[in-house]
Every structure is written in C-alpha cells, then in structure tokens.
C-alpha cells in the first residue's frame, strides 16, 4: 500500500494551549492562588490532566494517577487530627504529592504528545526567541537519554558489584555522576554536529510540516484558563 503522510496528525490540543494550561495549573493548583475562592476551578484543574490522558487512550496511566491522587488526598485528611510528629510529616508528604501530581501529569502529557517540530513552530508564532525554544526542545529530547544512560551505568555498577562496595558516599556519587556526564557530553557533541549539518541555526525562519492551529478543544481550554484568571481577579480585587 502506498504511504501518504498525514500532516493533520495532531494531539487534542495545540502546543500553545498546552503551555497556557500548564501555566494556569502551576498558578492555581501548585501555587494555590485564590485558595477557597477558586474551589471549583481548583478541582477542574486537578482532574483535567486525567481527562487528557483518557483522550490519549492511556487508560492505565489515568487509573494509576487517580488512585494515587485519591489515596494520598484521603490519607492526609485522615492523618490531620491530632497528628504526632511523624504523622504530620507523612501528612505533609502526601499533601505535597496531591499538590504536585496533577501538574506533573500534565507536564508528562505535554512532553509525550508534543512533537519537537510542532513546538518550535508554535513558539515561533508567538515570537518566542530560539534562544529559549531550542534549549527547551533539547531538554525534552534529552530526559529519556539521561534516564537511559543512568540506567546503563547503574546496571554496570551492579554487575561489577561495586554499588555497595563503594567505600564512601562520595564514591557512590562520583561513580554515578562521572560516566553519566562524560557520556551525555559526548552524545551532546554528536547531537549538535548532526543538527548543524542539517541546517539548524538560530534566528532563521523554519517551516513546519504539521498543521498547527487552534481547534475546538483549544477554545474550551483557553476559555477555562482565562475564566480562572478573571474569576481570581474578581475575588482578589473586588471582594
């Protein structure tokens, strides 16, 4: 069968919308702006990332996320009455998890569903400089590499039987960090060489094969985010 490139392939949301949502989520969920006044929006923003996971058909990830969230939420509620020092420490841990988890899931969703090429083009349309967008796209590209490398190094240490044998804590850190940085530095050098021989440069106009535009789901999310800020403003300055 003949292959035809489908340039309309896209995830549910436009990269710009995703970033707006991430921004909103870090202000209202992690930053807790508006507190009780934002009650309804808070819960929408907490569960929205799960809906996005469902839209990507990541049933299992969604279920696990909800389980962790609900579990730690109720556990920390239960621990709050007359806690001992340890219990309150545990409660704080769980509380921080409930704060951070939704945004982390959102961030993971964005990294997984946004193509580097798409991201560069969308940022370019918002006139964000290459000096930020190129490093950011490299970060996305590089997290899995760092994970891959450190796993290999860890395996090697286990195989050689020196993970416990390291005499001092400093050696344990040194043995992990040195090969990791050496290896990442070499990969980075080769990556730059390859990218530059393919014409990547700063401040030059690029095209993008993916069709980037706002669609209906974007509209809903953008309205939601703007409403959050407006409602917060009303609460803050008028009431």
């Amino acid at each position: 069968m003949e292959y035809r490139l489908d340039r309309n392939v896209h995830s549910l949301l436009d990269p710009r919308t995703k970033l707006l949502l991430l921004f909103t989520s870090s202000v209202f969920v992690v930053g807790n702006a508006g507190e009780k006044w934002m009650y309804v929006f808070y819960w929408i923003l907490v569960y929205l990332p799960v809906l996005l996971l469902l839209a990507e058909k990541e049933w299992k990830a969604a279920a696990v996320a909800v389980a962790i969230y609900v579990g730690s939420f109720y556990a920390q509620m239960a621990l709050q009455h007359d806690p001992t020092a340890w219990e309150s420490a545990l409660a704080l841990m769980l509380y921080i998890i409930t704060k951070i988890l939704p945004t982390v899931i959102l961030a993971r969703y964005i990294v997984k569903t946004t193509k580097v090429s798409e991201f560069l083009a969308a940022m370019n349309r918002m006139h964000v400089t290459d000096k930020l967008t190129i490093p950011i796209s490299v970060i996305f590209r590089f997290f899995p590499t760092v994970a891959e490398e450190s796993r290999a190094i860890n395996d090697a240490m286990r195989m050689r039987g020196i993970e416990m044998g390291a005499k001092k804590a400093t050696e344990a850190v040194e043995y992990r960090m040195v090969p990791l940085i050496a290896s990442c530095s070499i990969i980075g050098e080769e990556l730059s060489a390859a990218a530059m021989t393919r014409g990547l440069d700063v401040g030059k106009k690029r095209s993008c094969i993916w069709k980037i535009r706002f669609r209906f789901p974007d509209l809903i999310i953008i309205v939601l985010c703007l409403t959050c800020f407006v409602w917060w403003g009303i609460g803050r300055f008028f009431i």
């Binding site: 193509k115 090429s117 996305f140 080769e190 390859a194 393919r198 106009k205 095209s207 993008c208 993916w210």
Partner: peptide
C-alpha cells in the same frame, strides 16, 4: 543514538527541509 534532534521519526525526516524553510 546521537544523530536525531526530534523524538518522532516523521518529524526527523522533515527536519532538514524545515530548517531551510521549504514549503510544507
């Protein structure tokens, strides 16, 4: 392992042409 800038294969094929601003 180190010569791809993109994470997905299709975008990687387009990468060079995109950098030169060729028509999509």
């Amino acid at each position: 392992r180190s010569q791809f800038f993109n994470v997905d294969t299709t975008s990687e094929l387009a990468f060079g042409c995109e950098n030169f601003g060729l028509d999509p």
